[in-house]
Amino acid sequence: MTRLVHKELAGGIATITLDSPPNRNALSVRLLGDLAEHLEWALAEPKARVIVLTGAGPVFCSGADLKEQRTSDAPVTASFPEVLSLIWESPKPVVCRLNGTARAGGLGLVAACDFAIAPLTASFAFTEVRLGVVPAMISVPVLRRLQPRAAAEYFMTGEVFDAARAVEIGLLTRAVPPEELDETVAHYARMLVKGGPEALAITKRLVREVPAVPFEEGLRRMTELSAERFTSSEGQEGISAFMTKRPPRWVPEGS
């Protein structure tokens, strides 16, 4: 049976590609199964330092496979929470390279990633309410990215918005001309592989958790963490590499 998701590893970067263009990379049972398997591979592979999630064809992901859903009594996206958790909780940075438009559930994938870069020609919409359903599962990562007013506007109207607006409201990191997409994604990936693996995983948690911690408690905890990291083996290697003007051992050769 043909795989609906493909993987590739080069230069410390694991690229995972949704490859079901005939149905616009819709979230079918098979695609979600393949995606979960490939994400688990990337997380377990020591040589994979950064994960890039992208799609084949003109659409990144159109959301749930509605044709498949019509013939199934159970939700076809029953395994979607597992996929979202694998991305969200990944200790390795995850960059979403949107090859094109995204709708509904596809925006859950976008929001779960740490970085999201799209061409300016891409468009987006939370179309669920127009089908009489709701953006339930994807609201968990999406509402952690979107401005509250924008979330209410687009969740409730289903209106299409462009990539520039997606950046403005926090859904995307960057929107660039199509011809600059690959180089922009590569730029982020090259920068990320230079960070210490442990330091990146901890910093990813800091970005999410520290704003909710009371100020004085935050200072106390972060002072302890700072001292711990400076004396860690990874921290000592990074300092030694800086002082001797060489790349740290964790940087893939040629990066």
Score class of each variant (00 low, 15 high):
Leu53Tyr: 03
Leu53Pro: 00
Thr54Ala: 06
Gly55Pro: 09
Gly55Phe: 03
Ala56Leu: 09
Pro58Ala: 03
Pro58Trp: 05
Val59Cys: 06
Val59Gly: 07
Phe60Leu: 03
Cys61Glu: 10
Gly63Phe: 06
Ala64Trp: 04
Asp65Gly: 06
Asp65Glu: 11
Asp65Ala: 09
Glu68Ser: 10
Gln69Met: 11
Thr71Gly: 11
Thr71His: 12
Thr71Ile: 13
Ser72Phe: 08
Ser72Lys: 13
Asp73Ala: 15
Asp73Arg: 15
Thr77His: 06
Thr77Pro: 01
Ala78Cys: 10
Ser79Thr: 13
Pro81Trp: 05
Glu82Ile: 07
Glu82Leu: 13
Leu84Gly: 07
Leu84Thr: 05
Ser85Gln: 10
Ser85Asn: 12
Ile87Tyr: 02
Trp88Ser: 14
Trp88Glu: 10
Ser90Asn: 09
Pro91Lys: 08
Pro93Glu: 00
Pro93Asp: 08
Val94Asp: 05
Val94Gln: 07
Gly100Ser: 04
Gly100Lys: 00
Ala102Leu: 00
Arg103Gly: 10
Ala104Glu: 00
Gly105Gln: 01
Gly105Thr: 02
Gly108Thr: 06
Gly108Leu: 04
Leu109Lys: 04
Leu109Val: 03
Val110Arg: 02
Ala111Trp: 00
Ala111Asn: 03
Ala112Lys: 01
Ala112His: 02
Ala112Gly: 02
Ala112Met: 08
Cys113Glu: 00
Cys113Ala: 12
Asp114Cys: 02
Phe115Asn: 08
Phe115Lys: 01
Ala116Met: 00
Ala118Asp: 08
Pro119Arg: 07
Leu120Asn: 05
Leu120His: 07
Thr121Tyr: 06
Ser123Arg: 08
Phe124Gly: 06
Ala125Ser: 15
Ala125His: 10
Phe126Lys: 03
Phe126Leu: 15
Thr127Ala: 13
Val129Arg: 11
Val129Thr: 15
Val129Asn: 13
Arg130Asn: 15
Gly132Lys: 11
Val134Ala: 14
Pro135Tyr: 11
Ala136Ser: 15
Ala136Arg: 13
Ile138Phe: 09
Ser139Gln: 11
Val142Tyr: 03
Leu143Thr: 14
Leu143Ser: 14
Leu143Ala: 12
Arg144Phe: 11
Arg144Ser: 14
Leu146Lys: 05
Leu146Asn: 01
Gln147Trp: 10
Gln147Leu: 14
Pro148Trp: 09
Arg149Ala: 15
Ala151Phe: 05
Ala152Tyr: 13
Glu153Phe: 10
Phe155Trp: 06
Phe155Met: 12
Met156Cys: 14
Thr157Ala: 12
Glu159His: 11
Val160Ile: 15
Asp162Ser: 08
Ala163Arg: 00
Ala164Ser: 14
Ala164Gln: 15
Arg165Tyr: 08
Ala166Gly: 04
Ala166Ser: 02
Ala166Tyr: 01
Val167Leu: 09
Val167Asn: 02
Glu168Thr: 05
Glu168Ser: 11
Ile169Pro: 01
Leu171Val: 06
Thr173Ala: 04
Thr173Ile: 04
Arg174Ile: 01
Arg174Val: 01
Ala175Asn: 02
Val176Ser: 05
Val176Arg: 03
Glu179Tyr: 12
Glu180His: 12
Glu180Tyr: 04
Glu180Thr: 05
Glu180Ser: 09
